[in-house]
């Protein structure tokens, strides 16, 4: 007869059967100390091990690559960039502007405007003013040409879309009197859609990104931004990072 090991009742010739050791289980009550609980989870359930913040950030920068130059529409972690509503500890990951190709129309128009006085004079269509008046008219025309180009440049340069480690920001300046600032936390993003429609956007790889949120601003629209597929990937990574932080917060 096989008996369980019991020092009081085991005879010298009885085979000793030891009961198998019990498998480790999580304590029923959550341990108060944060460190111990994390260790238990890591040791007993390795499938729940997740990436650290630094690893997520590295993945994001691997996807983004490097900024080519300061006037680029795709600025990765710019050295000198800030916006008025930025928090002290907030890290700017990506700054976007509309693709450079969207500026071609006004650049061409500016180029043509520069030649207008010369062409008019060539064809004798210039108004029959006195020489001094003609000079002032030409000067005035070139000032208008300059301000036309300058205003378009300002509109392109300052209408930015910013992705930080905490939120997504859209800064729009329609004119001097209208500033529109929209932001949404990364954790509130519900859906991200990208659209690249047309021959030229497909050739130059730029398109629209619609970020649907559960915040007060239901949708943030990134219009005609470069590399939309990269932007979607980094938003996905940031959302995963936020979800993990929320999960760790709950465990903690």
């Amino acid at each position: 007869m096989i008996r369980i090991k019991d020092v009081d009742s085991v005879a010298p010739d009885d085979p000793v059967v030891t009961t198998p050791a019990s498998t480790p289980t999580l304590p029923k009550k959550l341990h108060k100390k944060k460190k111990k609980l994390k260790e238990i989870v890591a040791n007993t359930m390795p499938e729940y091990h997740s990436l650290s913040k630094a690893e997520y950030r590295q993945r994001i920068y691997d996807i983004l690559g490097h900024t080519k130059h300061s006037l680029s529409s795709f600025l990765v972690k710019p050295d000198i960039f800030s916006f008025q509503e930025k928090d002290q500890e907030e890290e700017i990951i990506l700054v976007l502007r509309q693709h450079w190709f969207t500026n071609v129309h006004w650049i061409i128009t500016t180029g043509l405007m520069l030649f207008v006085p010369a062409v008019l004079k060539m064809f004798g269509l210039f108004p029959n003013f006195a020489p001094m008046y003609q000079f002032v008219t030409i000067l005035f025309w070139y000032l208008i040409t300059f301000i036309y180009a300058f205003e378009h440049f300002l509109s392109w340069y300052f209408n930015v879309y910013i992705i930080t480690d905490e939120r997504v920001v859209d800064v729009d300046f329609n004119n001097i009197l209208v500033k529109k600032f929209s932001d949404a936390k990364i954790s509130m993003i519900q859906d991200v859609t990208s659209k690249v429609i047309g021959l030229i956007p497909t050739m130059f790889n730029y398109g629209d990104i619609l970020v649907q949120t559960a915040a007060e601003v239901p949708e943030i629209h990134f219009a005609r931004v470069p590399n939309p597929e990269k932007i979607i990937k980094i938003l996905q990574q940031l959302r995963q990072e936020e979800e993990q932080e929320a999960l760790e917060g709950r465990i903690n």
Binding site: S70, L71, D79, F81, S82, F83, Y157, F158
Partner: peptide, 11 residues
């Protein structure tokens, strides 16, 4: 002036 106050950049 207003634009540069809102968005601070190199240029």
């Amino acid at each position: 002036s207003m634009l540069t106050k809102n968005v601070n950049d190199k240029f």
